[in-house]
């Protein structure tokens, strides 16, 4: 285990505080190895944190209309335990557009995984699907 200077300094201070006058090579070794073990356990790695503030995403899909487009998207979403909060769909001539607000906070899958699955569906159905976090719409269009 490699320690940087800051950590070494901390270790020294701990040893001085604990032992003071009593310090001997053996005691110092004992205190240091105990502290180093403790440090190993609570390694301050950066914890994965969610960048979802609302837990909602906006899904936009469009392309040539064909049967099963909506079904393939919604069934995939329901498999992932995503909750569709709002949906608006229009068909103009042979084109369809669909915008959905989806709550993914209860989904076992994270944003990126859902995005990957949706891009698979987009490939199969030959349509475009965009997934974006709701925050971006809120910050751009609401004051």
């Amino acid at each position: 285990m490699r320690l940087n200077e800051e950590e070494l300094r901390k270790l020294t201070l701990i040893a001085i505080n604990e032992l003071g006058e009593k310090a001997s090579p053996e005691l110092v070794k004992k205190v240091i190895s105990k502290t180093v073990d403790k440090m190993g356990e609570s390694q301050d790695f950066i914890k994965p944190q969610s960048d979802m503030t609302s837990g909602r995403i906006i899904l936009t899909a469009f392309g040539l209309n064909k049967s099963g487009v909506v079904a393939s998207i919604t069934s995939a979403l329901s498999q992932f335990n995503c909750d569709i909060r709002d949906l608006s769909q229009k068909i103009m001539d042979e084109f369809f557009t669909m915008i959905m607000i989806v709550d993914i906070s209860n989904s076992p899958k994270d944003f990126r995984e859902i995005q990957e699955d949706m891009s698979k569906i987009a490939g199969e159905m030959n349509i475009k699907i965009f997934l974006q976090h709701e925050d971006i719409f809120r910050s751009m269009h609401r004051i």
């Binding site: 906006i58 936009t60 709002d86 608006s88 915008i99 607000i101 974006q132 719409f137 269009h141």
Partner: peptide, 17 residues
């Protein structure tokens, strides 16, 4: 829907086109 159709399409247009 809390966002207008146009607002959503505008955002997509900005990022994609």
């Amino acid at each position: 829907m809390p966002y207008e159709f146009e607002e959503i399409l505008e955002t997509i247009k900005m990022t994609e086109i």
